[in-house]
């Protein structure tokens, strides 16, 4: 709990981080948003259907649009409304259904941005002080290629989980358990148990790779295999605490979801209410991003409290290169 609160404080004192990842999230979605906007505008064109579509839900037009839609516009379905959007994505994730087409490309780009940024984010959260943007991005660059290597290891682990374990659980085992089942409630309970089982296998892996990143940054590790092994040791020796912290963070995540379930806006009419609805949605996005940063921050805080005194960051003090003008002056004899 102390680590969680410390993590929340660290994120609170780094609003630029929150703003930065929010902007990245927004900019990553903007290109596809433009494509969808054009598709809707073209389809509606001068149609009178646009009036009711702007004022609320014009289901007759929407259903027609879906039948004509191609590319990313095919994802524009009623499942995107309000909290259904969140349920849809969570459900797809746990049911091993990954995005396709343009959305997948957007996701890959987004993960690439995060892979670049996460080194600087962890460094900033570990230092607990402001860093200049040049320093931040230098750290990002420093760790990007290391995290690419770490990503190979993580990718292999997740591939096994989603490519082998998940199908075995939810197709083979679930199919076997429910083949002759005539009661839906029982089948649902079996599925819930399988979700829990999968989570118990997946979440420790996720946690290990979180600590691998943290140890890589805080201890300036160059070997990602070493970072993973060190993370495993760390988690194994403090399993209760690390799992407990992970659970607390998960609880925070669920609280954000629950709040959005209550506050998620209906498709508003145009004008200011449309922007209010969008603002609520963006507040939710910012809250989700904050919980992600709190994950890193709290785990970093816990690690630092365990293997070093507070504020300890093992990397040598950064020495930023002089500007070319300074260097030139320095060489003048």
């Amino acid at each position: 709990m102390h680590a969680l609160l410390d993590g929340i404080r660290r994120v609170g004192r780094a609003p630029t981080l929150v703003l930065g990842v929010y902007v990245i999230t927004l900019l990553t979605t903007a290109p596809l948003g433009i494509i969808l906007h054009e598709a809707i505008a073209t389809d509606l064109s001068g149609s009178v259907a646009a009036e009711t579509a702007a004022a609320g839900v014009n289901w007759e037009w929407w259903e027609e649009f879906q039948s004509r839609a191609t590319g990313v516009a095919r994802t524009f379905s009623p499942r995107i409304l309000g909290f259904a959007a969140v349920l849809h994505n969570q459900s797809s994730f746990v049911d091993n259904q990954f995005p396709r087409g343009e959305v997948m490309l957007s996701l890959v780009a987004y993960l690439g941005f995060w892979m670049f940024l996460v080194g600087g984010i962890i460094d900033r959260l570990a230092r607990q002080r402001r860093v200049a943007s040049a320093g931040f991005f230098a750290t990002c660059g420093t760790f990007f290629f290391r995290f690419c290597r770490l990503g190979v290891l993580a990718g292999a682990a997740y591939w096994i989980m989603f490519g082998t374990i998940h199908p075995w659980l939810f197709e083979d085992l679930y199919g076997l358990a429910t083949e002759n089942l005539a009661v839906e409630r029982t089948a649902f309970l079996i599925r819930l148990a399988l979700y829990a089982t999968f989570a118990l296998l997946l979440l420790p892996i996720n946690m290990v790779f979180d600590y691998a990143k943290i140890r890589a940054v805080v201890e300036d590790r160059r070997s990602m295999v070493g970072a993973v092994l060190a993370a495993i040791r760390f988690v194994r020796r403090r399993s209760q605490a690390t799992l407990g912290l992970y659970a607390l963070n998960a609880g925070l995540f669920l609280a954000v979801l629950a709040a959005y379930a209550l506050l998620a806006p209906s498709p508003a009419s145009g004008g200011s209410s449309m922007w209010v609805g969008f603002a609520v949605g963006q507040a939710y996005v910012a809250a989700r991003l904050s919980t992600k940063l709190v994950f890193y921050a709290s785990q970093t805080a816990y690690f630092q409290s365990q293997l070093a005194h507070a504020d300890y960051v093992a990397t040598p003090a950064a020495v930023w290169p002089d500007s070319p003008a300074t260097e030139a002056v320095g060489t003048i004899s």
Binding site: T25, G33, S106, P267, G270, F278
Partner: peptide, 14 residues
């Protein structure tokens, strides 16, 4: 309006 609504879903996907 609908693009803004949809973008929240896409952000949630990411």
């Amino acid at each position: 309006k609908w693009t803004l609504t949809w973008m929240v879903w896409l952000q949630d996907v990411l």
